[in-house]
């Protein structure tokens, strides 16, 4: 077949496909079964014409037009399937717990690492209290020497709404960055876990050194347990991405990485709403001197238990890959 005859005979099909594709794109919800079937048939013809033009008439206007049509058709007609999340309740009760369970084994790496970091911070700061100054700053250390926690100035000078919003966005940023940093062979996640563990140990030791551990407990009891849990869980999710980068086993690395990235994102997304709850608690309940420490501890434990129940969801089974 010569070029002119090829163009003359096949151009009506290309024009029809071009027009049908433009219409379908404009009114994607109104594409009926008949139109879609016709579009599929035309797409198949365009693909075959594209293959013929590529082989017989490379570089010509027809080959260029067919290449564009084939790519546009592929983009419109082939949709990658997602996880099929059916709303936030379905996500929180089914998809998130299933993803959490699949990633839970990495907690066996992250939790001991976190505890080692806590212990290191604890011991180092017990021996040299000025170590805590690296994180808290000289003003906070001076305040401790005068018998004041640094948290007092934070909560007394800023309205709860502002501190709550700031805390929530800051914690979510730390969680997202820690998770995304896991893609650097897990280094970002390790950094977040070790830094937070070390800081916790250092803060406990320095407040104990100045006999203010009780006041610190009163401040962190309501929000601390869950906050640390969320940081550990999101870091473990990041570590799964890093693990996929390093250990691909017998599958292509890009496939392992893609699966780990998407699965762990579900865990991170499931954790984000809890950061908002925690921010409210941290901004309103934690600094309130009128709330007894015992009640704060009970609230902290209740939040922790509620998160663990939602995350593991023992009432449902299955992989959650709907």
């Amino acid at each position: 077949m010569d070029y002119a005859r090829f163009v003359e005979q096949r151009r009506p099909v290309w024009d029809e496909f071009d027009a049908a594709l433009a219409t379908a794109r404009e009114h994607v919800r109104r594409v009926g079964h008949t139109e879609l079937e016709r579009l599929g048939l035309l797409y198949r013809q365009v693909l075959h014409d594209h293959a013929l033009a590529g082989a017989r008439f490379p570089g010509t206007g027809a080959a260029r037009r067919l290449s564009g049509l084939a790519l546009d058709g592929t983009h419109f007609l082939h949709r990658e399937r997602g996880r099929g999340v059916r709303g936030p309740v379905h996500f929180l009760l089914r998809v998130f717990p299933a993803a959490f369970r699949r990633q839970a084994h990495l907690l066996a790496v992250v939790v001991p690492l976190f505890l080692v970091a806590v212990l290191t911070g604890l011991v180092l700061t017990a021996v040299r209290p000025e170590v805590a100054g690296v994180f808290l700053g000289p003003d906070a250390l001076a305040g401790l020497e005068e018998g004041r926690l640094w948290t007092e100035s934070l909560t007394s000078s800023v309205p709860p709404a502002v501190s709550g919003s700031g805390i929530a966005t800051n914690n979510m940023t730390v969680a997202l960055t820690g998770w995304a940093g896991g893609a650097l062979a897990g280094l970002g996640s390790f950094y977040v876990v070790l830094l937070n563990g070390f800081m916790l140990g250092a803060v406990i030791a320095v407040t104990a050194h100045f006999s203010l551990a009780g006041e610190l407990l009163g401040f962190v009891a309501a929000h601390g347990p869950l906050e640390l849990t969320l940081i550990i869980v999101t870091a473990a999710a990041g570590l799964s991405v890093g693990r996929a980068l390093v250990v691909a086993e017998d599958r292509p690395r890009r496939d392992v990485l893609r699966d780990a990235g998407r699965d762990s994102l579900l865990v991170v997304l499931g954790c984000l709403p809890w950061f908002v709850v925690l921010a409210v608690v941290e901004a309103v309940v934690s600094p309130a001197v009128s709330v007894p420490t015992g009640l704060k501890i009970a609230l902290g434990l209740a939040l922790e238990a509620l998160f663990l129940v939602v995350a593991t969801n023992p009432f449902t089974t299955g992989a959650g890959h709907e």
């Binding site: 790519l71 592929t74 983009h75 419109f76 007609l77 082939h78 949709r79 990658e80 399937r81 997602g82 996880r83 890009r254 998407r262 994102l265």
Partner: peptide
Amino acid sequence: SRGGGSPSASA
């Protein structure tokens, strides 16, 4: 997507 199609929302 890697195959030239529309990526999923999660991607």
